[in-house]
Write a protein that binds this DNA or RNA. Structure first.
Lengths: 231, 231
DNA sequence: CCAAAAGTGTTTCACGTACACCCATGC
DNA sequence: GCATGGGTGTACGTGAAACACTTTTGG
């Protein structure tokens, strides 16, 4: 079983990646998986695992996310690296954390495709988490709050076509405060990064809202020129 | 010699830390050390080295900085973790990078205390760097530019007592653009985080400027309350 | 008295903020 | 026709930006 074949002159820490996956429903949620092996068997934890020798950190994060939650092609960004000596009770494990943003509605089913059970949790109603995952999650949440104001990453949480109301609700959820509708729309229209699709919602029990998409190409150009953005 | 005594079931990457040390002279500078061992022997590189089993990442960064440049107690913050597979030609090495800010004048001498030669370089006149250190340095510079605007980290580059002229020059160097003197002073005085020391410069060949220090305690309180800051 | 940097206010304009009503649709 | 969210404009105040001269000190 444990045929130990890789030897080094000095001890080496194990290297893992962990992903904090945010999704937006009525509230901002995180995806957690229930551990089926010790340590912390049965506890909830961030999806993640060991970095393979033939993959970069980004690749490892994407792979773990795919294997453990069925989520593929999500927005993934490195967050922080945690290297406390005793963060894993077994041995020294250094973890590179990532945060991911996905459209929760498109990933409602896959949450249980894997053998492990996965589920979405509200941020204010979390179970006890394994390892130092609560700390990682908190830092990820802070980073999301900070970053959403000056980078258009929040769009990753929405469907491709969205209404201005959904967009505003997304910002309100992440920033944790209500925004004025008219002022919000003024700001958004001045930023001028949305494409009006000339379509409206279907099957809503009220006046149907116009649909928009985010203009990624235009944003990329502006970003190259160093143009900023602020919500 | 190479008595290999630590064995694992799977191969493990080596883990290092690298520090991007910024100092302020007339210009913003970085401290580099000249490598005295292969690979890249003779090339300039960021100070850094292997993480020991009994120290955290932060501790490793502080130790390497001390050992290789004589700098102790500097402001150090984790930057990013680089995990490209072939970034070190010998074997897989993952590095956690840090950026450090020091008062260059207080660290002018120590630069050569260690066996390795260390020196300060202007950012626009860099030698060829070992490994992917140029990439790390660029990312560190970007981060510094971004962060200095909403966090009072720039003070780490100045002496404890400084003039408003020095403060402005620091921001101008980091942001890479000139600032209006009167508007700058207005902003600084409204932020209200400087303590007027009721002292003036000595030995200057012109009208002596008042000296100030940064009010760290007040900033810590405001930060807890979530109050922001903007230059 | 000259050089060199310190120090100081006002005006203008853009933007953030506060705020309330009618509209379209499905049931 | 009523409930539900969609969509729109104006007035006010604050803050950013542009801008030039006098003061102090050492040499």
């Amino acid at each position: 079983m444990s045929k130990k074949t890789f030897s080094y002159e000095y001890p080496r820490a194990a290297l893992t990646v962990d992903c904090v996956v945010f999704g937006l429903d009525d509230e901002l949620k995180v995806m957690l998986i229930q551990r089926d092996i010790p340590p912390f068997e049965g506890s909830w934890a961030l999806p993640g695992g060991f970095v393979h020798p033939d993959e970069t950190l980004d690749e490892a994060a994407a792979r773990e996310l795919r294997e453990e939650t069925g989520i593929d092609g999500a927005f993934l960004e490195q967050l922080y690296t945690f290297g406390e000596i005793k963060r894993d009770p077994r041995e020294r494990v250094v973890t590179v954390s990532y945060f991911a943003l996905v459209n929760l509605n498109e990933h409602r089913i896959e949450a249980t495709t894997d053998a492990r059970s996965a589920a979405w949790f509200c941020l204010d109603d979390l179970p006890t988490l394994a390892f130092d995952h609560e700390k990682i999650l908190k830092i990820a949440h802070q980073r999301l709050k900070g970053k959403v104001r000056y980078q258009p990453i929040g769009f990753e949480l929405l469907p491709k076509k969205f209404t201005l109301g959904e967009l505003q609700a997304m910002y309100e959820q992440i920033l944790g405060k209500p925004l004025d509708k008219r002022n919000f729309r003024k700001k958004i229209s001045k930023i001028d990064l949305l494409v009006d699709l000339n379509e409206v919602q279907k099957d809503v029990a009220h006046r149907a809202a116009r649909l928009y998409k985010f203009d990624q190409k235009k944003y990329n150009q502006l970003e190259k020129q160093g143009v900023l953005f602020e919500i």
